[in-house]
């Protein structure tokens, strides 16, 4: 029997969907090692988020509040989560590999003296323990690792673990003061310059339309945005056009940007460098529109259209719009 602790993530009192992917990973882990899982939630003003976490079958939802957690900082959150892991006697700690998850979780592992596997895509039984599968070299290789420490810490890639369904029941909420040594903190949250959008989150969207350098200039990106809006999808981009300042950083899909796995991914004027492919290869159906028939994107595309995107995009958008009627 093992105890697993899921580290939940909330922003301004709103739970992230990625947390529910971490819950799915915890359920899978419990199948392998036995036992059950608890959820730890840290911040301030968390009553509503804690209540939202009760129907997923956790042994308990630990609601940890402290004024030093009012703005997110890795230092304070790592202290709160590591203390919760110690208090619950967790042998496994699971978080989602979001930007906050990547930022905090290694610090939690260090505080617990635990080994950590990052960005895990699958879990399996291995000699009485667990083997973690994770992408390396931009996803060109999948490595299997085991963790040799008494406590094992993992972040999981949200696109590889479906969002958990509520399982009924109501986990008890255990509200307490988070263990944070406010005097030790030497960093302060100042603010978030949020990219406002009415479109779905890139990592949650079932349709993603991405644009690359083939669009030639920033103003042409509206061709991509129009198609995305027609299909109710999110907009992504290659590194080249993000670097060029055409679109926000937050739109980058790839090894070092967002990893997406929508039902439909349309790459428009994207050549398909391995770093980009690492971020979208898991998509169910991939469409590539590019006038260069030799572009590597066609090697991963289910449907390739070798054509000038400036002719294709308006036609495609218009015809799809009229289909929806």
């Amino acid at each position: 029997m093992a105890t697993i602790l899921v580290l939940a993530e909330q922003h301004g009192g709103k739970l992230t969907r990625a947390t529910l992917s971490a819950v799915t990973a915890a359920r899978q882990l419990a199948q392998i090692v036995g036992g059950g899982f608890d959820i730890a939630l840290a911040g301030t003003g968390l009553d509503a988020v804690a209540a939202a976490l009760t129907p997923y079958g956790a042994g308990a939802v630990h609601q940890l509040e402290h004024e030093a957690l009012a703005g997110y900082t890795a230092q304070a959150y790592a202290q709160a989560f590591a203390s919760a892991a110690k208090a619950t006697g967790a042998q496994y700690v699971v978080a989602a590999a979001t930007s906050n998850g990547k930022d905090t979780t290694p610090r939690v592992a260090a505080r617990l003296g635990a080994g950590m596997a990052s960005d895990v895509v699958a879990l399996s039984a291995h000699g009485g323990g667990v083997a973690y599968k994770r992408p390396m070299w931009a996803g060109n290789v999948l490595g299997h690792v085991k963790i040799n420490t008494a406590v094992q810490v993992v972040t999981v890639r949200p696109t590889e673990f479906p969002v958990a369904e509520a399982s009924g029941g109501a986990s008890p909420i255990q509200k307490s003061a988070a263990s944070v040594d406010a005097g030790s903190l030497r960093m302060k949250y100042v603010g978030l310059d949020k990219v406002e959008s009415s479109r779905p989150e890139l990592t949650d969207a079932s349709v993603v339309i991405s644009g690359g350098r083939g669009l030639k200039e920033a103003s042409n990106f509206k061709l991509v945005e129009k198609l995305a809006d027609t299909l109710g999808g999110a907009v992504g981009a290659s590194r080249a056009v993000v670097d060029a300042g055409w679109v926000p950083n937050d739109w980058q899909v790839g090894q070092t940007g967002k990893v997406v796995a929508p039902k439909l991914y349309v790459a428009v004027g994207i050549s398909g460098a391995i770093q980009h492919l690492a971020g979208m290869k898991g998509s169910k159906t991939i469409v590539a529109i590019n006038k260069d028939a030799e572009a590597p994107i066609f090697q991963v595309a289910d449907y390739g259209l070798v054509s000038d995107l400036f002719g294709v995009m308006p036609e495609l958008t218009e015809k799809l719009a009229s289909r929806k009627g």
Binding site: L142, H144, I286, F298
Partner: peptide, 21 residues
């Protein structure tokens, strides 16, 4: 001494060849 140890590798799943339209 290692906290995390490699126990093997595998290639990523290949995507089936697509078609040109």
């Amino acid at each position: 001494s290692l906290k995390v140890e490699s126990i093997g590798f595998e290639p990523p799943p290949a995507r089936k060849a697509g078609v040109k339209v």
